[in-house]
Amino acid sequence: MKSIDQLADSQDGAITRAQVLALNGSPDWISRQVGTRRWQRVFPGVYVVYTGRLSWRSRARAALLYAGPDAALSHASSAFHRGLVDRPGTVIHISLPHGRKVRPQPGLRVRRRKRMPISGGRLRAVNTIDTVLDVADSVEADEDLVVSIVCSALQHNTDIEQLRRAVRTRARLRRRRLMLELLEVIAEGVESALEYRYHRIERLHGLPVSRLQVRQVLDGLWLRADCIYPGLLVRVELDGQLAHPFGRTDNDVWRDNAVSISTSELTLRYRWRHVVVTPCLVARQVAIALRSRGWQDTPRPCGPGCAVGGLLAGTSWRATSHY
């Protein structure tokens, strides 16, 4: 039955019972395909016409076919489909118009909405801006995920002013304050959750505000610094745990050498663990580096027990190890 195979191919390997019957397939023939494991039943009345592990696209398409023509991928599934996150998760998230109902199924999360903000594509999905707001509004999303998805959306050419208006106008939006603050610092150069956390370390501890994502030509190469403190010959490089899982790369070392030779700048390099787990120690070390290069102001502790407080209590400004 070539026409059935062609239709399934055009639908990422998924097909419905109704579609098969419309193409002259019989209920017994469908049962044989499933019984011999040529096909896999994904949801009631929806099959995938191949063996082995299901691809994410097949599962997503099967979910849309099960839910009906007015369904759309949303939340984490739309975010993955649009390239805003790296992992799809184990559950397919879809949205339906308010008033529509489908039976709950394992591996499927259904939400209903009064407005269906859909944009084009082979898979129906909520548009990028509403996807960002959906993820930010979900209970499951932590702060780092919200920061990452907003940064990713803007790197995918989402208009920052349209996103800002959407954040301000959507009713009952969780983390509205975080997102508005984030949009401000993104305009200053923040591009990741790690950079946002470092920016917050500066603010909470009274450190100078660094310039972010500075491009320079050093030793004949175009290099980009995560953070530079102008006039103080100090820069900070932030290495995310996913980008550099086994430590500094050859390019990192070459960049640091070029900076030292060409500018005599001091490079401080921090990983995710430093910024997330020991932010006060990071602030302390940065303050010591800045003071060694002529910074005249004084940092402030962010609270009781902050490591910066030792500097105010007469502890030497000399760098010391805490590891």
Results as ranks from 00 to 15, higher is better:
W29S: 14
G305T: 08
C151R: 00
S119W: 04
V214K: 06
A136N: 01
C151M: 00
L178V: 10
L173A: 04
L133T: 05
R124H: 06
G305M: 05
I201V: 15
E140I: 06
F246H: 15
A76R: 07
P245N: 13
V190D: 05
D239T: 06
H81T: 10
V234C: 01
L145G: 13
S262F: 01
I186E: 02
D86E: 14
E184N: 13
A171P: 04
R164M: 10
V190E: 08
V150A: 02
V147D: 13
E184W: 12
V185C: 04
N257P: 03
G99I: 08
D252N: 11
P97V: 09
A287W: 02
A153T: 09
R200D: 11
T320I: 12
V217M: 05
A289T: 01
L242D: 15
T278M: 08
H322F: 15
D70F: 10
A62Q: 01
R37H: 15
R273E: 00
R269M: 06
R235H: 04
L96H: 10
T249S: 15
A14C: 04
A62S: 14
V259H: 01
Q213G: 09
A166Q: 12
G35S: 12
G45P: 00
V276S: 09
R271D: 08
H93T: 11
Y196G: 03
G309R: 14
R170L: 11
R111A: 12
H322G: 06
R111M: 08
C302S: 10
T267S: 15
R175A: 04
R175S: 04
A18L: 11
P104H: 05
R164I: 10
R318E: 14
D226L: 00
V276R: 14
Y198L: 07
N251P: 00
L232H: 02
G107V: 05
D219V: 03
G294E: 07
V132N: 01
A76I: 04
H156N: 13
D159V: 07
G45V: 03
V48E: 03
G52Y: 11
Y50L: 02
R215N: 02
P299S: 07
V20H: 02
V209P: 08
A313W: 09
Q162L: 15
L108I: 11
V46N: 10
N251G: 08
D250V: 13
D239A: 08
T298R: 15
I129H: 01
R57I: 10
Q216A: 07
A313K: 15
L238K: 00
D5Y: 13
S58D: 03
A136F: 03
R124W: 00
Q296H: 13
H205L: 03
L180P: 12
